[in-house]
Design a protein around this nucleic acid. Sequence first.
DNA 1: CCTCTGTGGTTGAGCGTTCAACTACACGAT
DNA 2: ATCGTGTAGTTGAACGCTCAACCACAGAGG
Lengths: 157, 157
Amino acid sequence: MNDARWLSDQEQGVWRRYLAATGAVNDELERQLQRDSGLPHAYYEVLVSLSEAPDRTLRMSELAERSRSSRSRMSHAVARLEQAGLIERTGCPSDKRGAFAVLTEKGYSALVDAAPGHVNAVRGVLFDTLTPTQVQQLSEICSAIIGGKPAPADKSE
Amino acid sequence: MNDARWLSDQEQGVWRRYLAATGAVNDELERQLQRDSGLPHAYYEVLVSLSEAPDRTLRMSELAERSRSSRSRMSHAVARLEQAGLIERTGCPSDKRGAFAVLTEKGYSALVDAAPGHVNAVRGVLFDTLTPTQVQQLSEICSAIIGGKPAPADKSE
DNA sequence: CCTCTGTGGTTGAGCGTTCAACTACACGAT
DNA sequence: ATCGTGTAGTTGAACGCTCAACCACAGAGG
């Protein structure tokens, strides 16, 4: 493990804190959403994306992009959400390979029901914990990470 | 969605960037480790914990704590790692309910092989992307999220 | 000794993600 | 027309995680 390119003690500490912190945030959100709404966070985000789209409708691939997710994953996810009655699928007339996902009324209410608790959890875990200065710093740090790597990123800002 | 406790536009932006950034970091690390070593990141961390313990040995529950993981998860994980020959289990003489997990030579080599690529990935995704100031800020932000304890040199866990 | 409660650890089912096929259609070239 | 290539989306198996039992033992009290 004595590699010339190993992390410094300081870097190693930061990295471990990073893993602990993001892990804690993740766990807390996942647990809260699952407990209060029976939805995994990933599925909640799918509903959010659809709710913000015109006609609450998106192509599968668009939906995958916005959720930073693979097509396969979105296929499985939408299948489950459809089976739960929160989403419906319709074919695309102009391109017969395509498929639309549409948020149902039931799906919209599920989202409206889930949102306050979720927002509360986000506040509790992040915005209530950090100072406004830290929030600003975190924002810039995240922008740096997103922009510096060839990863599927949200450009809608 | 017009809840009095909804997130402000700024907060919402930060939150989405946070999700994108941490998601990208996660995906990148998971992909790199899986491709180059066939290990999920969680399993890699188990090997790291064991490699740092005296005699490369830890009780299951200690291992679970250090990996911020449930006992169940650790049981499954160690079962798989044992089956892969990277870990061995031995009973605890003083408490016959207990079990030790021991890193094998093969497990140690697997870790040594995997480490450089992993460290490289961590650098590429985080430390090469951020300025030293941002790294320091991130460290304090993570500390705040974890425990509310500020000190960068803090080690009260 | 025996039960009662608590703890260390395991197990199995259910679920979400991944990966590698695979289907079906679009589009351009031959 | 048909061939080849590329794209949209789906499928199934393998795998890791979670959750709720569950087993085996420890320790205290009767």
